[in-house]
Amino acid sequence: MIQCKEITKSYYNGDVETPVLKGISFQIEKGEFVAIMGPSGSGKSTLMHILGALDTPTSGNYILDHHDVSMLSDDELADIRRTKIGFVFQSFNLLSRASVLRNVMLPLVYADIPKHERVISVHHALRAAGLSEDRWHHLSNQLSGGQIQRVAIARALVNKPTIILADEPTGNLDTKTGEVVLGTFQELNIKDHHTIILITHEPYVAEHADRIIHIQDGMILEDKRNHQKRIVHLNQ
């Protein structure tokens, strides 16, 4: 469960204060599929960084699984990211010269999980992300964009996080592969009850979620149920 209470974030350039987030409050329950939507410059990336424990708010509280993570040190934030958050990036960010298995295993390496347990978790995550088994031993730079993003999703899943944060996951993909990736998220949400937060500037992408939080100029413009959810039918 996620709770944001009056979160603000300002950047300082010398004495000049630039407010980016101006008091954001919302709550996301376990198992929800939420899209955070807004144009560039709306502060959605900054919000994502705070939700992903990459950054801390200037004021307000961010409560993740009943723990206030708004005032933690760098290493404590790293702990939160390792145990509770799975990232999926627009630019994938895989280790290009490493195999698929090694890429997915990486979060477990930092979590000090024993070797034999790692392999089980990695296989499980790759299956859940829907990457066919004959690709598992490929190097990640031998895969197509859609396959790469599935590897990235598997990597986000592998440490069984509380939330999966997807930052423009379809931004570097063509429409069709983008659809497949979004379908994968829907499946993970429906079948395995993963909490998914999708950050995007495209209304079309946001419409794949159950709930859309619309952000503009650092404030919530609209927070509504999505009644016209676009459902992708994956035929595997």
């Binding site: 760098d74 290493d75 790293a78 990211r81 390792r82 145990t83 960010n93 979060p107 930092y110 440490n159």
Partner: peptide, 16 residues
């Protein structure tokens, strides 16, 4: 740099 960023995002500490 990006790889380091990724490693940090998935939970690597400074020490790691």
């Amino acid at each position: 740099t990006r790889e380091i960023g990724l490693r940090k995002a998935i939970g690597a500490k400074k020490r790691d």
